[in-house]
Write a protein that binds this DNA or RNA. Structure first.
Lengths: 221, 221
DNA sequence: ATTCCAACGAAACATGGGTTAAAGCCGATC
DNA sequence: GATCGGCTTTAACCCATGTTTCGTTGGAAT
């Protein structure tokens, strides 16, 4: 992807890459830092639908869809590469392997969303949080950003609540319990160490097959 | 799609098109009837992630993904067309317009999943159900299967609970309230009439832009 | 018509998670 | 090394939703 013309841009924490209803002119690849994708519902509550990290394109859907159906915002400061929409579109159809990779990206994205629906819809708070922690740990590892044994969690408890459909208060309560049970340890705020990976996986009902890691990943970037 | 070699098959209610972890050899286009896509979480609870109707392909993701990450099951009896996976794959890359339509299908699917995450994660029971009723009504209309003013709801309250992440008991309570407030009327079980579309849309916080109806839909079939 | 069964409806009770509010903590900044 | 603001933690209380149970209904089969 970086062979295409692009602009590298440093972005501050909380900066919006784009907002719901925007027409976006560029696709955005994260070079460093973390971004979230979220929607606001009536009443002002927020639901985070995805957390994106280095090497991921956050808005490939906007290459074909006219309007953004959700917002993308930086969770931390970082760097992104902006690639003109038409360029992406062109290369997608000129080079079948690239087109295939983009289609695959959309399919894996959708699979992760499905798991998220199940997580939020049918698991209790303890499982939901454990599940999110497992997924994040594994994705960090795959991206070469750290080991599941311990990592920096780039988000606040309130944001974790927005991922899991819980309130920050209940996230706090529940993480305290996970800690008391030895599943995780928290060194400083925003940094967790996984005390018992096997148990965490079990509590979180985490089965990584929905990430479709093997079959694909001739990484897009 | 039906120009490709395919087999038409009649399927009974509750028949599985395929199950989680299957390798599927065919893509499945619904010709009549309804199907659901669902996942089972630890504890045996079920989450329905999508309801599919006439003209939709339920498992296009399996053309590129090796294993099914969720099950597809008929909600009613119906007819489906099974198209060999390799055929779909071939035509996707031979004919750019078809490849584009399939990519777009994945993107719209993902957008609907995102809305579903927000629905289940951040709306209360009343809104969730109203939202699902609105979406279903609109999609039926788009598919040419009826008018939003009233339609046959092909699922039980328990299944509606599995869509919304609620129990059947609470779905029942809540629908009774919606009925008492005049937002819907129920003629017979499984058939609803929408009493006040505007209000239902408002209660359900329903904004159809996530369905991306305008911009796309040079229908796949 | 009668039977049967799945789905609906309803009541009584239990509880997980929400709400509100206040106090502590910690890292950045001056 | 004091101040400040965002984040975390705790506590008390409340309510939306879950659980259990059982009675009712209505459509399909005979």
């Amino acid at each position: 992807m970086l062979a295409l013309p692009h602009v590298v841009k440093a972005v501050e924490q909380h900066h919006y890459i784009h907002r719901e209803r925007d027409r976006s002119s560029h696709a955005c690849l994260i070079l460093s830092g973390y971004a979230i994708r979220h929607k606001i519902v009536a009443g002002g509550h927020r639901q985070i639908v995805a957390i994106q990290m280095k090497g991921e394109i956050v808005d490939l859907q906007n290459v074909l869809l006219d309007y953004a159906d959700h917002s993308v915002q930086m969770l931390t400061r970082g760097e992104v590469a902006l690639i003109p929409r038409e360029e992406v579109n062109r290369v997608a159809f000129e080079r079948p392997s690239v087109g295939r990779a983009m289609w695959l990206d959309a399919l894996v994205d959708a699979s992760i969303f499905r798991e998220c629906i199940a997580n939020v819809g049918r698991r209790d708070a303890r499982s939901r949080i454990a599940h999110v922690l497992c997924e994040f740990a594994l994705r960090l590892k795959v991206a070469g950003l750290g080991e599941p044994s311990g990592y920096r969690l780039p988000m606040t408890q309130e944001q974790l609540g927005d991922v899991t459909g819980l309130t920050s208060v209940h996230v706090n309560r529940t993480m305290k319990l996970l800690e008391a049970d030895g599943l995780i340890e928290r060194l400083s705020p925003r940094s967790i160490m996984i005390g018992d990976w096997k148990k965490l996986v079990e509590v979180g009902d985490f089965d990584d097959s929905y990430l479709h890691l093997k079959e694909n990943e001739p990484a897009l970037s």
